[in-house]
Simulated scan of single mutants.
Amino acid sequence: MSSSLLKEPREIDEIVYRFLEISDFEKGFSECLQQLTEAKFTKSQFIDRYSELKKQPDTYFIVVAEDLKKKKIIACGTLFVEKKFIRNCGTCGHIEDIVVDKTYRGKNLGLRIIEQLTHIGKKLGCYKLILDCSDSNVKFYEKCLFEKKGVQMSLYLPMSKL
């Protein structure tokens, strides 16, 4: 992934915003995600999934914030780009898995992650960006210029091994 897709500035107050790297497993990527939902995985699982995503460089964009002093991942978010037939075979961006480490909340890190993902979506020509969130996070996303629209529905399926 080209770092030219990222919005400037990429480093603020010893915090760098960049794309996920293979070395981020050791920097607490899983621990950061676990503050959002169940996200325990082994290094081997991380490497396998990371390699899978890298094979689709125009589809998955995972941005992390790293505290350079602590060498720790302190925030992250994902933009998944869906290729559509509608809108003249356009692309729609899905923002997922936004989380900020609890000890860093209130410092606009989530806002900066959303800004990075929005910037990437614009540069890639997405006609819209969508995300799901809990009612308690609506005000945050409204500050990020998202508007409440429609209703989210979910069907959770049992995990199966192929």
Rank of each mutant, 00 (worst) to 15 (best):
C89S: 11
K122C: 02
D67P: 08
Y60H: 14
K69Q: 13
Y50W: 13
F80D: 01
K55W: 02
V100G: 03
K55I: 00
F61P: 09
H119F: 12
C92Q: 15
L68N: 10
G77Q: 12
L131Q: 05
N88W: 00
N137R: 04
K54N: 12
I120F: 04
I114Y: 05
Y60K: 07
T103Y: 04
R87L: 13
D58H: 10
L124T: 02
R105M: 10
T78W: 00
T91K: 14
E147Y: 12
D101Q: 03
Q56K: 15
Q56P: 00
T103A: 13
L68P: 06
I113C: 07
D135W: 00
F85H: 01
S136N: 13
R87N: 15
G90S: 12
G121M: 04
E142H: 03
H94D: 07
Q56W: 09
L124V: 09
K71G: 01
L79F: 11
I86M: 15
G125N: 06
K72D: 01
I86E: 13
R112N: 15
K139L: 02
Q116D: 06
L109Q: 05
P57V: 00
L53P: 03
V81N: 08
N88K: 15
K148P: 02
F146I: 03
I130P: 02
V81A: 08
K143E: 07
V64E: 11
I95V: 14
I113S: 03
K70R: 13
E96W: 11
P57D: 07
K122D: 04
G110H: 01
K148G: 03
K128C: 10
C126T: 01
T78C: 13
V64F: 06
Q116H: 07
C92K: 15
